[in-house]
Design a protein around this nucleic acid. Structure first.
Lengths: 252, 252
DNA sequence: ACCGCCGCTTGATCTGGATCAAGCGAAGAT
DNA sequence: ATCTTCGCTTGATCCAGATCAAGCGGCGGT
């Protein structure tokens, strides 16, 4: 806790137009002076550290958050006092979209590692989107994309077995990191096995056993948090559920 | 198939301002002449019948659809040739929001019973929202609400057992029908046991057994598609997972 | 450098719900 | 009216993954 260094503001103060995420983030396809206007409403906070909250469930909704570097998990309380991990958020990804409706956050967002986060006050963003059609369109797409992603998760939790879930999880991380310009095959997990299991609807032990199995099968190397994917093609085929002999899925 | 009656257009041609769904649908809180403008872009189609598609996965995205009466299911193909039921849509609910991002439908929407559906061409709606701030806000809320709903489903599929899932499903139907002005305790299921099971990540047999059990326990009456909920309070408590003796949920 | 905690792994056992297997009966077809 | 199909129910069995149990070892703290 005593290690909070004072970071020079110059390091943080990076305008949207120079942001390496610009193609992933909101401003995609905006005219230069529209980017400027967006840039003006974005707050750049000092780096957050592992365990810090962006918001907690029950908090009033004020802003969207964009991960610039690092990672964040979101999770919702379940009635019994446990929690459901809803997602892991990597650079370029937006957090808080689910709270627009009720104006109250229904989940919490916790920083998994030292991270830089942009804060975008939603009311101001809304004013902006009303005058910049292409930004409005981006917002609709952003919200829609989130729905599509949730849909994928529903299919995963509803129809896939443990092996397929973990393979899908690893490939999802891989693709998202790659899109961000990082290695698709060599990365560190910022979340615990427990959190992965919670997210995928599996017990910690199952996650651990599958890591071991995937490694034994030559699909990947696992060393603590350090992951190396060795055979993306086979992992991809595992996700498809063509595990070899799978009963014809039920047609409803 | 030979029973397609010609329905008089007057029956269908009901303007938004007179629509009984107006408080649930898009126009909430709009000025009268804004409702008028919205009304002008909404297409009202002839009634659709069981088995008709609003769209299929792979179709180009053009419109959102609002259920006026009846019900619709949406479902996505899974890699193995099966499918995942993504939702059942009742009057006042909007379909197609997930396709805005990619401009292609990733799921199909199939009518479960004779239904009246409004079609809202999205491009025109987008033009409208750009000039009516409160409508824009409604759109954001609508999209956000959908994300929130998906989040609930993730918790259900990730953490709840069969009993909790079915209880949650029944109560969800009950509340949504009630909001629409229909009975919260007496209704007909327009979907099959198979579809319910698929939606909830359960086998048909499990759904059937649970219906029997709930009935034996005096929580509800089940006669084919006809459902009567007798003890909402107990059903509610089942959802909470307080089944009685439940291990303390994992804290990630 | 040492200690203690906690996250992870691995093995053994248990179980909720899936799968397999038989009817049953209602709704639609002829 | 009868047939046929298909959706549903109910019983028996099976199994993937949860739970229980027991270390191991890295990492943070002092």
């Amino acid at each position: 806790m005593s290690q909070h260094k004072v970071i020079s503001l110059e390091t943080i103060r990076v305008a949207c137009r120079n942001c390496s995420l610009s193609s992933l983030c909101l401003p995609m396809g905006l005219a230069p002076d529209d980017v400027e206007r967006l840039d003006e409403i974005v707050k750049r906070t000092r780096p957050l550290h592992r365990g810090d909250f962006l918001f907690r469930d029950g908090d009033r909704f004020r802003s969207l958050y964009v991960v610039k570097t690092g990672s964040v998990k979101t999770f919702a309380p379940s009635p019994e006092g446990g929690e459901q991990v809803l997602g892991f958020h990597l650079p370029g990804e937006v957090i808080g979209l689910d709270a627009i409706d009720k104006d109250i956050h229904a989940c919490s967002a916790k920083v998994l590692e030292t991270s830089a986060i942009c804060e975008v006050p939603f009311t101001r963003l809304e004013e902006l989107t009303a005058t910049i059609p292409s930004l409005q369109h981006q917002m609709y797409r952003l919200l829609s994309k989130e729905i599509g992603h949730d849909t994928d998760m529903l299919l995963l939790l509803g129809k896939k077995n443990a092996e397929e879930r973990l393979a899908a999880f690893l490939l999802s991380l891989s693709k998202r990191l790659h899109k961000r310009g990082l290695s698709a095959t060599d990365f560190y997990l910022s979340m615990s096995r427990h959190e992965i299991g919670n997210y995928l609807g599996l017990a910690v032990e199952t996650v651990s056993r599958l890591f071991t199995r995937f490694q034994d099968d030559g699909l990947m190397n696992v060393d603590r948090k350090h992951i190396q994917l060795l055979d993306l093609a086979t992992l991809e085929s595992l996700v498809g559920g063509a595990g070899q002999n799978r009963r014809q899925q039920q047609q409803s």
